[in-house]
Design a protein around this nucleic acid. Sequence first.
DNA 1: GTGGTCTAGACCACC
DNA 2: GTGGTCTAGACCACC
Lengths: 124, 124, 124, 124
Amino acid sequence: MLRFGIDNSSPVPAYQQVKQSILIDLMSGRLSNGDRLPSIRELAKILKLNPNTVAKAYYNLEEEGFIQGKQGSGYLVKFHKTKLDNLKLGILEDEFRSFLQKAFSMGFTRKDIEDLMRRLLNHE
Amino acid sequence: MLRFGIDNSSPVPAYQQVKQSILIDLMSGRLSNGDRLPSIRELAKILKLNPNTVAKAYYNLEEEGFIQGKQGSGYLVKFHKTKLDNLKLGILEDEFRSFLQKAFSMGFTRKDIEDLMRRLLNHE
Amino acid sequence: MLRFGIDNSSPVPAYQQVKQSILIDLMSGRLSNGDRLPSIRELAKILKLNPNTVAKAYYNLEEEGFIQGKQGSGYLVKFHKTKLDNLKLGILEDEFRSFLQKAFSMGFTRKDIEDLMRRLLNHE
Amino acid sequence: MLRFGIDNSSPVPAYQQVKQSILIDLMSGRLSNGDRLPSIRELAKILKLNPNTVAKAYYNLEEEGFIQGKQGSGYLVKFHKTKLDNLKLGILEDEFRSFLQKAFSMGFTRKDIEDLMRRLLNHE
DNA sequence: GTGGTCTAGACCACC
DNA sequence: GTGGTCTAGACCACC
């Protein structure tokens, strides 16, 4: 956790950056069901943000069903595995479609792409 | 040609942007061997750049073997097919490696990725 | 619109009171699809609340699919009829179940209740 | 008997709360004709009230014809069945009218309401 | 300690 | 004008 800082010059709002960072940790498995998130005030202090800003990120993630907060006892990671899997799959599909689009626009054929993928998949 | 504008706010130098745009047109086939490029002055006017900037992009592309200039008759596209193919392949490989890295960091296995790719390759 | 004031002594948060009042207007038909809501600042001024508090009520209603905001042009009522109908039906069912519970706890039979309902339904 | 406590923060006077609780027990059948009520002092002690307060509730219920006290032998439940039935009916009618009012204000028609009531009456 | 609500007010982008 | 984000800080309830 907390391998990130906030980029104030980014047009992406700070609360979205917090949210995205936590989602990335969920998807990578660095945060698992039942893990405790840092308290709103603690994370705000570390990231040099106002508590309200961190709270907004947490509310958002709670609404979307990834974490759950309790008065007096903080936020815990709590999601349905299938929900997270669908999110991940959606992102991966988008990435791959964008890759495909570039490949086709450079004139590669399906076969070219398949050969390249097979070659690289077995060498990394 | 010229479906692009210069992004002055970008940290990428203008001459690199010009170069990249022309390379993209080469790779996509919109520019072919023998095609005539717009004159340095003409392109500079359209993109609102100093002619020196456009000239720098053209010199670069000439050194790298993609276009060729002749005194008094402008620049023509002229490249060895294998050279362009290698460039394209290198770019595609980089894109695919970056895709793979994301997929692995989200916890997908080689098999997951292969299944997704096969599924999307045959439906687009 | 705006037939309500905020009860500061209530344990119900102000933003919830705003939200409920608007929902009641939606359910009663006083607010219809396409109607414009008062601006956040305007409503805040009238209800003597901070703009953030009104904004929270509006965000909530937007998330739940009852209104829609656009930067620079305010919030409009926008909901799917079925969604509102379901909300209304759910509330009415809860009310009726609670009525039934009271009636049964007072010892009335199904027949007693049916008679009373038939009598009152046709006289109001 | 005595499944209740006194809410000191309520604006409803304590003696009214005692009275209401006993009436509810009468209406539900938990107290029947001939049952003995706890003595004034006993109930006062349990509810942490002044005996005068409980006495006021009992005098009231006696005046209204629901219970009867005898010197030296405490209070017994004693009411005319029709009197209690009328009280119950009046309360139920008030509840139902208030339900109807809400339903109409949400735009439901008589037929909507009848359908809902029939459906719920036969399923609970 | 924890989160939840709220105020007062700033600055930005969109119109 | 409009909404969107954010800060600084208060006060409350729950633990």
